[in-house]
Amino acid sequence: MMASRTYEHAAGAAPVGAFQAILLAFPVALFPAALLSDIAYLNTAVIQWSNFSSWLLFGANVFTGIVTAWAIIAAILGRGRGARTWVLPGLLLVLFVAGVLDSFQHSRDGWHSVGTLGLVLSILCTLLAFAAAFMAHSRTGISGRAA
């Protein structure tokens, strides 16, 4: 079973699924990186860590925005069925909103650029990014969207 599913996926879903996977790789990599550099800033008060976070969040938000728009359009065009269709776009939308808020938080100056709110948002974004990617990739595999 596993083998045939993998084969199906690779053969049919590749163009769409792979593109989505590439887009999703950015938030998956960048939000946790921002969280790590936030932690480094809170531990050291060396401002460059906060600057790193700002740029990491900027990149994460751009790609989250694109993949969110994509997911919403795909849901509208009815690529799936039932309430589950909206779980992934909904999750991505929450991630995008939280990411943009985190970016605004990081545009504050000095010590206020991270703070409790920044740390909480970065943790939230990291968890949501993992959750969204996990859902997107396992759904592709299980439902066999290629067929």
């Binding site: 925005g65 694109i66 969110t68 728009a69 939308l93 995008f96 909103v97 943009v100 808020l101 605004f104």
Partner: peptide, 16 residues
């Protein structure tokens, strides 16, 4: 992308 831009700008407005 239009949706993204719309989302971002309305979010920014709400925050502002």
């Amino acid at each position: 992308m239009k949706i993204t831009a719309l989302l971002a700008s309305s979010l920014a407005l709400a925050v502002a």
